[in-house]
Design a protein around this nucleic acid. Sequence first.
DNA 1: GTCTATAAGAAGATAGAC
DNA 2: GTCTATCTTCTTATAGAC
Lengths: 194, 194
Amino acid sequence: MPERGDAIRQQIIEAANRLFYQRGYNQTSFRDIADAVSIPRGNFYYYFKTKDDILYAVIDHRIESIRATLAAWDATSTDPQHKLRLFLAMLRNSDSELAQYGCPMGSLNIELGKAQPVLKAKARQMFDLFRDWLTVQLTALEVSQPQAMALHLLGRAQGIAVMAQTYNDTALLHTEIDQLVNMLNAIPAKSALP
Amino acid sequence: MPERGDAIRQQIIEAANRLFYQRGYNQTSFRDIADAVSIPRGNFYYYFKTKDDILYAVIDHRIESIRATLAAWDATSTDPQHKLRLFLAMLRNSDSELAQYGCPMGSLNIELGKAQPVLKAKARQMFDLFRDWLTVQLTALEVSQPQAMALHLLGRAQGIAVMAQTYNDTALLHTEIDQLVNMLNAIPAKSALP
DNA sequence: GTCTATAAGAAGATAGAC
DNA sequence: GTCTATCTTCTTATAGAC
């Protein structure tokens, strides 16, 4: 059952989640988060002992969010090709955020990968979720190396996000996503096989 | 003619260049750079007034380095396809740095793009150099949309760098670069045209 | 559970002696 | 040109009153 204070804890996580994305983890201070939630700075430490603790909670929050998204896609259809299009549609629908702040998973991994290996290992778990889900869909489509193809797709998405943010250009993002959709449609549907 | 102190100024730029890449711009302090060059912190301000000034100098240094690299590639061959392979060979040769710290251009743009628009505009100039050089080569190869293709290639390289760093995996990088080499070789050579 | 006050240290930056 | 001392502000974090 929910304890008292859980609501504020949740507010902190959501504010930190947004700020870490928009400013970066190291560029976000306790003060920023406390101000966003309108609680005094000192009270902060009742909920989280260290800054790393908040990051872990934020990543866990994101992981749950990703799991929910993937489950929703799985519930929408049994056609793996259609599910993969949902993945690309998500990127397309996030165009303005991606052009402003880049990919939340990618930018966090790059930042932490520079000099915070322990935190980065945690952040990588978000990538693993997508990689494994994509691998399942590509296995169902019987492509030759499903996991390599899953990593390829993730990489393409990351590259598109970096370029869209670098040039602040959603049109570039749309053009590149279209190419991925075409590539996907070129995979022979399993039902067409003997 | 070189003034006194230029040698130390150059040492500062080179140390900052390395530290910005390995730790990130915002995660590198004056103290870090001063210690790396073994000069007292106070003396630092004789050479650079603000931290932004150092970043500008570092980016200018990188831009000169990129220009020199592109000029060297241009001098090596007149065959655009061969020159494009030199671009991909550079990525392959940087595999361990890319897997550790990501792409120096991409990671800097992502970091600054979050909340430092003025600095990011400067950092984007590095991308412009590669974009324009790639566009020239692809125009010579008479591909249909040379600039879009140049941005596509840059994006592919960025995506590969993000994945290589996220999974700390140079093998993944090699696999993906091989695909780019194959894609490049599939472009019909201009000399084969009527 | 909530809040105030404040510590301890690191950050960017300055003044001024040598 | 070089260096010491110092300032202010911000950061993470704690103690303890309410």
